[in-house]
Design a protein around this nucleic acid. Structure first.
Lengths: 271, 271
DNA sequence: GCCTGTGAACGGCTTCACAGCG
DNA sequence: CGCTGTGAAGCCGTTCACAGGC
């Protein structure tokens, strides 16, 4: 995956072009917790994403009645190695028992706390086409905690039509409706040309987190967090691997032909 | 986001536990191109994903009639810094002109070549629910080059029904149909419990690249490439940022209260 | 003079390996 | 003795800064 992250906006880094705010505000204000005082906020983004995966695996284990897991078991189920898993868990605290493992219920609780899943996050979906429909019908979104509370589109024929039990609103009402329903996450599922404008509207409406399905690089202020899901990119990355595989196969055929008599390098089934 | 990648299976690295193949195969076969001989295969995965983004931006520029771009312009449009862009492009060769920039047409061609987009990649979608419908209707998939040539589901009511102009096939025919239509990419859009079984079937059918939308960690052989798109994870990562923001805001309110008289750290609008 | 291409420095994530504790 | 928790090492991707050409 692939997340869209802006420049790291580290404190003290000179930005390419100073923003208006920086020029016109003579008295700076503390806007980032000083490194010394950061309260374990040092969880790598990659680890955060994995924590979400562990959480899902743990939920499955809890349903199957497991009370305890070792790092080895959990790691296998999550598709990572156990050292990485233990490191990831160590970022959120020490909730395991040496010689035994982790209590499933405890881990679930702690991960949910860290991920902020104890509070509900109201979601708005903008763009009720094929994808928007699918998203709206997900119904409450994965694992609960992300209720879809607003749908928007420009098409007048769609406005008012209920999708997934929720009537579609007109895009011009974004600001008002998002404020009323305290939307904290905006999902953009519009055609590419509309995406930036929709994004701007969401941002002015106070939405600070955006999940973007449109194949467009969104420009947003520093305080807004964007993650993107880009089908074209995913397919093209896979395409790259297909091509690489084909190339390697060609080279390997040749290599194996040449070095047919002696041992070569190392073995691994390639089909 | 976030790609699912197995252990790096580097040549010469002792695996945690030797596989059956390694134990029972006395004569190893070359299955990976030796480091010395690798033909610029050293493109970081992250760079590959960005190349796909550059490609899209470049296509837009070409339509708007631009013949040339500087690294600065292209980088801005793609949302990265220019150093990274130049580094990424350097992985595929030296196609720029010093003092001038890059020719749009040339870059497009070279990136397409590297990404393997000169050949078509036939796509099969499995699981024709909400999401599957949306994917099938994308019609030919982004930017051409990824024609959807097969749809599958278990539901007998769906089999035979045309979706996006293509009749849905039964899941039991995966192997035959994928072979016939030379499917190189399988897309899994099934409910979670079915995902692993579908994946296994795709793999036995010879599909080596999988795009997984099901919230499940797929277990696949080493030679199969899996990328996953995980809505729950994306939302939970955003949730984490919401929570972090809230925490910081609390701490900052306190900090600004305390240090109200003197300058603090550095400025940046936080809303 | 300007912009590309890239070695080198840097930083952050991953892996290792073992101390620490139940 | 087993498994967690973690400093340290290693590795890889990003950023810097400037040499190299046009």
């Amino acid at each position: 995956m692939a997340a869209q992250r802006g420049q790291r906006n580290g404190v003290g880094v000179t930005p390419p072009a100073p923003t208006a705010a920086e020029i016109t505000t003579p008295i700076p204000r503390v806007t980032e917790v000083p490194a010394a005082r950061e309260r374990a906020r040092a969880i790598p983004e990659a680890a955060v994403a994995r924590l979400a995966v562990y959480l899902r695996v743990l939920s499955g284990m809890q349903e199957h009645g497991s009370g305890t897991v070792s790092s080895e078991e959990l790691a296998a189920a999550a598709g990572v190695n156990s050292a990485k898993l233990r490191k990831d868990l160590s970022y959120i605290g020490s909730y395991g028992t040496r010689g035994v493992g982790y209590e499933v219920a405890v881990l679930i609780e702690e991960i949910e706390r860290i991920l902020g899943l104890t509070r509900k996050h109201s979601v708005a979906v903008v763009g009720i086409g094929n994808l928007g429909h699918a998203l709206a019908n997900y119904g409450g979104f994965p694992g609960r905690g992300f209720p879809v509370t607003a749908l928007f589109d420009v098409d007048p024929d769609l406005v008012g039509v209920p999708v997934g039990g929720l009537p579609v609103g007109h895009i011009d009402d974004i600001a008002r409706v998002c404020a009323e329903r305290e939307v904290s996450i905006g999902v953009i599922a519009t055609p590419p040309p509309a995406a930036q404008a929709v994004c701007d509207r969401l941002v002015s409406a106070g939405v600070q987190c955006i999940l973007n399905f449109a194949p467009v690089v969104l420009q947003v202020p520093d305080h807004v967090e964007v993650r993107k899901v880009d089908l074209a990119v995913e397919l093209q990355v896979l395409s790259f691997h297909v091509a690489r595989r084909a190339d390697n196969a060609a080279v390997l055929a040749e290599a194996n032909g040449r070095a047919a008599n002696g041992r070569a390098v190392d073995g691994m089934v390639v089909s």
